[in-house]
Amino acid sequence: MLSSVAERIYWAGRYLERTENTARLIRVYDSLLLDLPRGLNISWYNLIELNSAEDSFAERYRVQDERNVVKFLLSDEDNPISLQTSLKMVRENLRTTRDVFSPEVWELINELFYFGRDEVAQGQGRKLRYGFCEGIIRGCEQVNGQIAATTSRDAAWQFLELGRYIERADMTSRILDAGAVTLLESAELLGQVNLGQIVWGHVLGSLSAELAFRRRVRTRVSGPAVADFLLNDPHFPRTIRFCRERVADAIRILPRGKAVQAQLEVLAAVYYQVESIEDLGQPFRDYVNEVQIRIATLHRHIADTWFALG
């Protein structure tokens, strides 16, 4: 496989995952904010922080309100992480690799792209927002399903998996961090309502993980249980561990994978067990931050090994 094609497929995988994650985040925030008690200092702007997009947001908007945040994340074509931009990048990358995926994949991507572009106004207002996000998530799943059903498990597939799981691990870590910071910042309100349960319930919800969590952990939703599950569960497809293992699988199969193996072990070497509420303090945030840095380093190793032309 051409290096340049591998790179585009990898990015198509990342952007497709990012598109879905953005829709998931907005969908869950809609619901979270309705459940929270008044006076709590949790706002839509958290989504900007979660995506480390404070600077590019500030360049475009002054007011950190729902309208601007949603606009920035959904439809802003100048924002490199907006849903619009992500969908466009999926399409552009797949367009240049049309010789790899089946025509049906391309058709679905096109449909999704036009849906995202033409219906994005629905996502602005609260009334239709849920439906819009659903449509995007469903469209992404359709694309993933079509790809899974019609793509050979050769190098193309492995690069798509690499992109998908690296992006996903990164997002799961960000969502965990957001959960932790929410509770740290509203410590004085803890106890007023069962705030922990609301926040961590939504953390699970943003990853469609409620059911898997309950079946696996068999306990009520609590910070430590959720965090430990999303970090270390080997079976649910959005946990950090699961993502890491899929990345490892892909790297094992690809030629010259040995060059990346070491960095993968570095990522696996950090382990954090969450047993009590105390474990979710600053050390937890530091740990999650470290995971993100190591994911970024892994990405660089992947790029150097397979994409570098020269």
């Binding site: 496989m1 051409l2 290096s3 340049s4 094609v5 690809l254 397979w306 032309l309």
Partner: peptide, 21 residues
């Protein structure tokens, strides 16, 4: 393969494409 010029390289009068392997 669909290639662009930068995917190809000539060495000792033979043409190669740059691949992941």
């Amino acid at each position: 393969e669909l290639v662009e010029g930068r995917d190809l390289v000539v060495d000792e009068d033979k043409v190669y494409m740059r691949t992941i392997a």
